[in-house]
Amino acid sequence: MIGKYTYLQVALFVFGVIFCLVYPLALVWPAGWVWHEGAPLSNNYYAMILGVYATLGIFLIRAASNPSAHVSLIWFTVWSSVIHALVMAVQAVQQPMHGGHLLGDVPALLLVAVVLGVLVRKAEPATG
């Protein structure tokens, strides 16, 4: 526990905020967060992914107040982050010009998955 907040609550809030900040991350380090040439919003796909991650971020922030009521959202975040990271890793290896993603969004998504997965697992009541 951290005061009255659990580590899971803190992680949900922090990752939620970070998901809402993907666009500024893309401005600071495009090689690690953007898959196309030019400004981050010059690509329709990227604008869509920003919208999806900002929405997920807001819901993770909301889930932080009562994680047990949002377990399915947390597990969705874990598994979708793993799948997203694996797809991006394969693409980055196949397209060496995107190698920065192996140091940017790929490990970031795996970190989200591991941290939330471990913490939600510890928070779940034991089933017998």
Rank of each mutant, 00 (worst) to 15 (best):
17 V>P: 10
53 Y>L: 06
22 V>D: 08
116 L>K: 04
93 V>L: 13
88 M>L: 15
63 A>F: 01
1 M>R: 10
69 A>T: 02
79 W>Y: 12
37 E>A: 13
97 M>Y: 08
114 V>S: 00
69 A>I: 01
128 G>F: 08
37 E>M: 13
56 L>P: 00
58 I>D: 00
120 V>W: 02
91 Q>S: 12
5 Y>R: 07
80 S>V: 12
31 A>S: 11
9 Q>I: 05
45 Y>M: 13
33 W>Y: 14
73 L>K: 06
78 V>N: 04
54 A>E: 06
40 P>T: 10
15 F>G: 09
124 E>W: 05
42 S>V: 15
110 L>M: 03
68 S>M: 09
19 F>Q: 05
117 G>Y: 01
105 D>K: 11
51 G>E: 03
23 Y>N: 08
19 F>R: 02
118 V>M: 09
21 L>Y: 09
81 S>Y: 01
83 I>V: 13
100 G>T: 12
50 L>K: 04
98 H>R: 06
47 A>C: 09
75 W>N: 07
17 V>A: 08
40 P>M: 08
88 M>R: 15
84 H>M: 05
47 A>P: 02
83 I>C: 04
49 I>W: 10
82 V>I: 13
83 I>W: 03
63 A>L: 02
70 H>S: 06
28 V>E: 13
123 A>D: 14
21 L>S: 12
3 G>Q: 02
78 V>C: 06
64 A>K: 01
96 P>L: 11
